[in-house]
Computed example of a mutant assay.
Amino acid sequence: MNAATLPRLAVTAGEPAGVGPELLARLAASDLAADLVAITDRGLLGQAAAACGIRLHLADDDGQRIAHRPAGHLRVRHVPLGAPVRFGQPDPANAHHVLAMLGAAADGCLDGGFDAVVTGPVQKASINEAGVPFSGHTEFFAERAGAEVVMMLASPALRVTLATTHLPLAAVPAAITPALLERTLRIVDASLRQGFGLARPRIAVLGLNPHAGEGGHMGREEQDTIIPLLERLRAGGMDLIGPLPADTAFVPAMRPRYDAVLAMYHDQALPVLKSEAFDSTVNVTLGLPFIRTSVDHGTALDLAGTGRADPASLFAATRLAIDLARHRAAA
């Protein structure tokens, strides 16, 4: 990408029976300044556009960069469906279609053909029912790229990263090790510098226990694991705050003190983020050798095919991907 061309984004439609194809159609109908390349089944995209009452001008992707994309124009990298789609009814026969979309997007980013990938929501259960173990986009891309990654959820006002993601709560304390925290914090720090342009990122680290352990009276993880690790990383130059009690870390007076938060587990911080910015929150995978953003919602099967699904999260994910791509190109 250069100053004369648009950021070239791969956009995957996600679960074909969900709202992803319709959201992609609405994105394509906008005049957003990006070279959008839909990775999906061409016929499915036509169905989705019809459901939304949108007329799209579709063309095969030729791999060439462009300087302008008129609203409603979209290039497509065709990935055929495994079975016809009935909106709202996922079919495991389309699991390999979904995986092929993700593989094409990742490989295109790795070989430089795309500047970023933006992903629509997938139905994990449907993929697993097809006999393919699948825990999510993040893990898929990490394995494809051979990278260690961290999940970030970002809104215009708050960035939250996670030390652990989809673990049962009972398994979290044993997972919070010095090695995990150091790896996670180094990825977050590097990503905030390289991707978000922060010269000295300030990261607030939450405690695991109520009141951040209350000096060891409500749990020893802070005293034995978190505090010693933070002190060592601070001595190495990282700007780390905490461990902070999760119940006060997000109050307005605290927000100006940090650029991002590291939470110890999934539901420690995400309810705060989603309750205040659900439609504008973006899932970002840190640590990959390419940019990946995603909607922060599910497949909404009950809305699929109605044309009523709200595309706000996909627009937010695409805008952030554009910003990150431009920043990376300028670095």
Rank of each mutant, 00 (worst) to 15 (best):
residue 65 R to I: 00
residue 79 V to I: 15
residue 78 H to E: 11
residue 66 I to A: 08
residue 68 H to N: 14
residue 57 H to K: 15
residue 40 T to C: 15
residue 90 P to S: 09
residue 78 H to F: 10
residue 85 V to L: 03
residue 48 A to Q: 09
residue 32 L to T: 11
residue 56 L to H: 06
residue 69 R to E: 05
residue 51 A to P: 08
residue 81 L to C: 11
residue 96 H to P: 00
residue 86 R to L: 13
residue 43 G to N: 15
residue 49 A to T: 11
residue 70 P to D: 13
residue 96 H to G: 05
residue 18 G to I: 03
residue 66 I to S: 07
residue 99 L to E: 05
residue 76 V to D: 00
residue 97 H to L: 07
residue 72 G to C: 13
residue 59 A to Y: 10
residue 35 D to L: 02
residue 51 A to C: 15
residue 73 H to L: 12
residue 85 V to C: 05
residue 67 A to R: 08
residue 75 R to Y: 00
residue 85 V to P: 02
residue 101 M to H: 03
residue 13 A to D: 06
residue 93 A to G: 14
residue 92 P to Y: 01
residue 44 L to R: 08
residue 17 A to S: 15
residue 29 A to R: 11
residue 75 R to E: 09
residue 40 T to F: 00
residue 85 V to R: 01
residue 15 E to P: 07
residue 43 G to I: 11
residue 78 H to W: 09
residue 45 L to Q: 03
residue 58 L to M: 14
residue 61 D to T: 00
residue 22 E to A: 02
residue 59 A to W: 10
residue 97 H to W: 08
residue 29 A to I: 09
residue 13 A to K: 02
residue 70 P to H: 12
residue 42 R to F: 07
residue 62 D to G: 10
residue 18 G to Y: 03
residue 48 A to P: 07
residue 78 H to K: 10
residue 86 R to C: 14
residue 63 G to A: 08
residue 38 A to Q: 03
residue 97 H to D: 03
residue 50 A to W: 05
residue 45 L to Y: 05
residue 46 G to Y: 03
residue 60 D to P: 08
residue 97 H to Q: 08
